[in-house]
Design a protein around this nucleic acid. Structure first.
Length: 212
DNA sequence: GCACCGATCGCCT
DNA sequence: GGCGATCGGTGCT
């Protein structure tokens, strides 16, 4: 049988709020320096709509070395460092010159759990499997993704890529941690797989709490 | 130059 | 449920 289908450039050539729900159920793969491949099913994402989106790093056309990846062609990886200690991983979409991206907030670990457990262990305590990649900072930590992978190509590169997959029932909500973004803070630009225990804390709650 | 604050996390109460 | 840790990016003085 054939291997997993790698998502190609055309998959990413669309608006962030269209791409985001389509990414639920797809698999994020990361090849380690040693050759081993780690995999996780995407279960939670957020769309960032660029220049018009007050919560986006590219709001009002901001363009700096830090967010340059957002302006690169669709299918580029955008990794940034925040809160002095966390990395966050985004999939750039739309088209070159248009700064839109989807933040990957949580994964359901599929391959390489031992490596993820080792990376996430703290003071001898290892998180439960469903918490290995729960939260954007933890996704990067578990996969060993940092600024070295910023601007990598997901379509042609061999380090990080995406594979096709199907998601379960979707939940939608406002994005997390963007309360100061005015009206944009209230827009429902976060998608997650309902009743999946790997969805991040706040998300799992609002997801379970939200009816229908 | 410098002050402010963030697309967070985990521990503490 | 609340808050401290911790530091680079950004924008203003």
């Amino acid at each position: 049988m054939s291997g997993p289908t790698r998502l190609d450039r055309s998959f990413f050539a669309t608006q962030a709020d269209t791409l985001a729900p389509r990414l639920i159920g797809c698999v994020l793969a990361r090849r380690e320096p040693g050759g081993r491949v780690l995999r996780g099913r995407i279960v939670e994402v957020e769309a960032y709509l660029g220049a018009k989106d007050r919560a986006s790093h590219a709001y009002a056309g901001r363009r700096t070395p830090r967010n340059e990846a957002m302006y690169m062609r669709e299918g580029t990886l955008y990794v940034y460092f925040t809160y002095g200690m966390h990395h966050c991983l985004n999939v750039v979409c739309a088209e070159e010159g248009v700064a839109q991206a989807v933040l990957v907030r949580a994964l359901e670990a599929v391959d390489g759990l031992e490596v993820m457990r080792a990376r996430r262990a703290r003071a001898g305590r290892v998180p439960a499997d469903e918490a290995l990649c729960r939260g954007p900072g933890n996704v990067c930590k578990a996969l060993g993704v940092d600024l070295a992978q910023n601007r990598a190509d997901l379509c042609d590169g061999g380090v990080v890529w995406l594979e096709a997959g199907a998601g379960g029932r979707l939940g939608v909500s406002a994005r997390i941690g963007v309360s100061s973004a005015g009206a944009w803070a209230r827009r429902r630009l976060r998608w997650f797989e309902r009743e999946n225990r790997c969805v991040s804390g706040t998300g799992a709650l609002s997801g379970r709490r939200r009816r229908t």
